[in-house]
Design a protein around this nucleic acid. Structure first.
Lengths: 229, 229
DNA sequence: TAGAGCCATGACAAAGCTGTGACAAAAAAT
DNA sequence: ATTTTTTGTCACAGCTTTGTCATGGCTCTA
């Protein structure tokens, strides 16, 4: 699932890109309107996140051009006050908008909502591996027929990542970056997080059966026998 | 539920369309009177949102024609000052009117009110989840056989949204935007609103059984047993 | 056998989020 | 114009979640 992020402000663009990558998107960036159109043609993304304030060619024009040539969903970034922008943008066929400043969570929610709405949806409601079912929207995990257990945001994030890559071992660095972002997080925090997660989902946290530790490498979610692919 | 949106101003038409889609309508557009009549015949919408200022054939004529051939509800869009238009329009059988500029919230409220009133109610007169019944038109809620309780406009709006998505957890951002619109509203306001709503509908507001909180995410209206998927 | 590295654990502090009550401002009703 | 209702703002308390630190066990190696 490819996303094109277009913003003049590189810092913001990076933040957006990072957030989307964390959700499994492959992200391409552009920093002005001209570049945006070019990249869009090259890469044919499944989603465009577009700031309206752009040098060279402004966001509205970009949006219109894209819309003329395809139905790629477009998500607009606007400043809070400028309702006109919103109206104008939606008029040009944008699929939704977000007002700055916005939280990463909000961005992801909108992006997925747009994809779902336009039918390009690769957004499964729940993640399942063997008997373990995670519902990220509620941060709720259920194992077999047992009572569901509520997870904290970080726990849910971690488990989601591990389950997404079930059967593989992920390095601590990769996990830390995925959960806390490029700037924050250290080994100790991850250890604690794993610990807390295990204490919620493992029958016996001392001898884990779902989350395995590979010393010197990292952690993995074990896939129950019955290989395929 | 199909809606036909007729407006010369494409930007505005798109905004209206967007707003209605968000409420679950399937939306068709037309940009002049002639097109409007044609589309109306083709698509047989359940609701027409009609600007009175139209090229080729003006809105009043369109309204009259539609009304001659069916009882499809018609919602007029007029400019604030022209009271004559309103009188004229209602005289021709329009079901309600909105003066520009208007808020999305207002539009949706009117649209659903009109549908309800004319009995085509796709938005059934009331919204029901388990033992809880909300009548948005009266802003009245009844739980089981208990006495109905009156809600304030915002409370009703919030509850309606939550009940519409019963069983799901909605993010605070989404709720705020739905209730207050893109520009207004913060977490504090939502907290208060939830609080006031709970104090009216929960037997014991301290341990809510209808409106659940998911910390860090948002709120949801709990669906009584009968698992979803 | 001692030391280094890695991991699990427990206890505790810091930060964040939610619920609450009181009150001010705004809107609606009279 | 005044009263009542509704909505918004603020500060605080309690809980949850997260981060930090210290300790002990284990394995590997010199």
């Amino acid at each position: 699932m490819k996303a094109l992020v277009v913003d003049d402000d590189r810092v913001l663009a990076d933040v957006v890109a990072f957030t989307l990558r964390r959700e499994g998107f492959e992200v391409i960036q552009a920093h002005d309107g001209q570049m945006a159109l070019q990249r869009w043609r090259e890469a044919q993304p499944d989603l465009v996140v577009l700031d309206v304030n752009l040098p060279k060619i402004d966001g509205f024009t970009v949006c219109r051009q894209i819309r003329e040539q395809s139905d790629t969903p477009v998500l607009l970034l606007t400043v809070r006050d400028t309702e006109d922008d919103i109206v104008h943008g939606l008029g040009l066929g944008a699929d939704d908008y977000i007002t700055k400043p916005f939280s990463p969570r909000q961005l992801v929610a909108r992006a997925q909502a747009v994809l779902r709405r336009t039918g390009k949806a690769p957004t499964p409601a729940v993640r399942r591996v063997g008997p373990v079912t995670l519902d990220p929207s509620r941060r709720e995990i259920r194992i077999g027929q047992a009572e569901p257990v509520l997870l904290t945001p970080l726990e849910s994030q971690l488990l989601d990542y591990l389950m997404l890559n079930a059967g593989q071992v992920l390095t601590t660095e990769a996990i830390i970056e995925h959960v806390w972002g490029p700037a924050g997080g250290d080994r100790d925090m991850l250890r604690q997080l794993v610990r807390r997660l295990r204490s919620k989902i493992e029958p016996d946290p001392a001898t884990p059966i779902y989350i395995e530790t590979v010393s010197g490498l990292g952690y993995g979610f074990v896939k129950p026998l019955a290989d395929s692919q």
